[in-house]
Amino acid sequence: MAEPLLSVRGLSAGYGDASVLDEVSFELEEGGALALLGRNGMGKSTLLATLMGHTLRRGGGIALRGRPVERLAPHLRPGAGFGWVPQERDIFPSLTVEENLTVAARHGPWTLARVHELFPRLRERRSNLGFQLSGGEQQMLAIGRALMLNPALVLLDEPLEGLAPVIVEELSAAIRRMVEREGLAIILVEQHAHIALGLTREAIVLERGRIVHRASSETLAQDHATLERYVGMRVAAKAA
C-alpha cells in the first residue's frame, strides 16, 4: 500500500491542564477527503489546531508524507503542507483582500489568478480591507488564503457555518471542485453532517476526544442511528 498523505498515531493533546484529544489515530490517503463529525466540544477543532501546532501535545505522532511534523513550530507547518481555514475565519482586518492572499503565498500551482477564478468575488473586492467583507466573502478569502499556501492538505473548520443557503451552495461547489478536479486532500469539520458527507469519501466521528466511529461517507449518510447518536437529532433528521 502506498504511503498515506497524513498519518496520525495515538495523538493526545489539550490546552493547559485540560486534556481534549485522547489517543486519536487515523490515516488519510493522497487526494483523500475526510469528514470529521461530532457534537460541539467533542474535539474536532482541537484536532485541527493540534495539526497546526497550536495546542499542547501530550503524546502521539503526526506524519505528513512520512515526515514527522508533530514537533515543528507552528509557522513551519504550512511549509510542511498544511493549509488551515480556522473556524473564526481569522481574516487579517488591517490587510486588504489581496494582501490577505499574497501575505501567505508560496510557490506552486495555486496563484492569485487561480484563486480569483475560483472565487471571482475576491477579485472584485481586492482593495477592500479584511473587516469590510460579508461572512461569505470572509470564508471565501479564508479558503483562498489557505490555497495560496499551496498545501498538500486543507483543514476546513466549519466553513459553511452561519452562511446563507445560496453562499453555502457556492462554497460547497468550490470545495467539491478542490477535491474532485484539483485532487486536493481535505479534512472537513462540519455541523451539517449531510453536506459534509456529500463532499467527502471517508468519515470519522469524535466523541469526548476519542474516535468512536469510522465509515465511508456514503455508508454513514445512510446510517441514521449512528448519526443520531453521535451527531444529533437535528442533523440526522435533515439527512433523512
Binding site: 497550536h54 507552528p74 513551519l76 481569522d90 487579517f92 501575505v103 501567505a104 499556501l149
Partner: peptide, 11 residues
Amino acid sequence: DNPRMAQGCGI
C-alpha cells in the same frame, strides 16, 4: 492582527 493565524500562514 492575529499572531496565531499569521503563523498558520507560515509567517
